[in-house]
């Protein structure tokens, strides 16, 4: 790792942790189902960035790119299904608030 790359490495890592914390905060605080999904997306994005940083810092950038393309495809499928479920919840309950959707208890 060159000196430039090393300083960038910590900058990137700080950014990854910031994105991660934003995602955690959003999922923990919000009462809206759509916002929960956005928070989950943010979390996944943080993980994606971490893979890029890993590839960049070890010089395996091509492998990292291949992994990320696959990751994005898989993630889109997950979020599409999740959005479908949220849509059905909206239709059945008439609300997107987490508080109204608690028939089941752990």
């Amino acid at each position: 790792m060159s000196k430039d790359a090393a300083s960038l490495f910590w900058l990137y890592n700080t950014f990854v942790i910031l994105v991660f914390l934003c995602g955690i905060y959003l999922v923990a605080v919000t009462k809206n189902l759509i916002k929960v999904l956005i928070g989950l997306e943010l979390l996944t994005k943080a993980a994606t960035l971490l893979i890029i940083v890993a590839g960049y810092s070890t010089g395996h950038i091509a492998t990292a790119q291949a992994l990320i393309i696959n990751l994005i495809v898989v993630e889109v499928v997950v979020i599409a299904v999740a959005a479908g479920v949220v849509l059905s919840i909206r239709k059945k309950y008439g609300s997107l608030n987490v508080k109204n959707i608690s028939n089941l208890k752990g």
């Binding site: 979390l43 996944t44 993980a47 395996h60």
Partner: peptide, 21 residues
């Protein structure tokens, strides 16, 4: 999804050390 994020972060860390998955 939370579990997935943990797995992905772990994969990234492993990738950082081993250079392969």
């Amino acid at each position: 999804a939370v579990a997935t994020v943990l797995l992905l972060a772990s994969i990234a860390l492993v990738f950082m050390v081993s250079g392969g998955t």
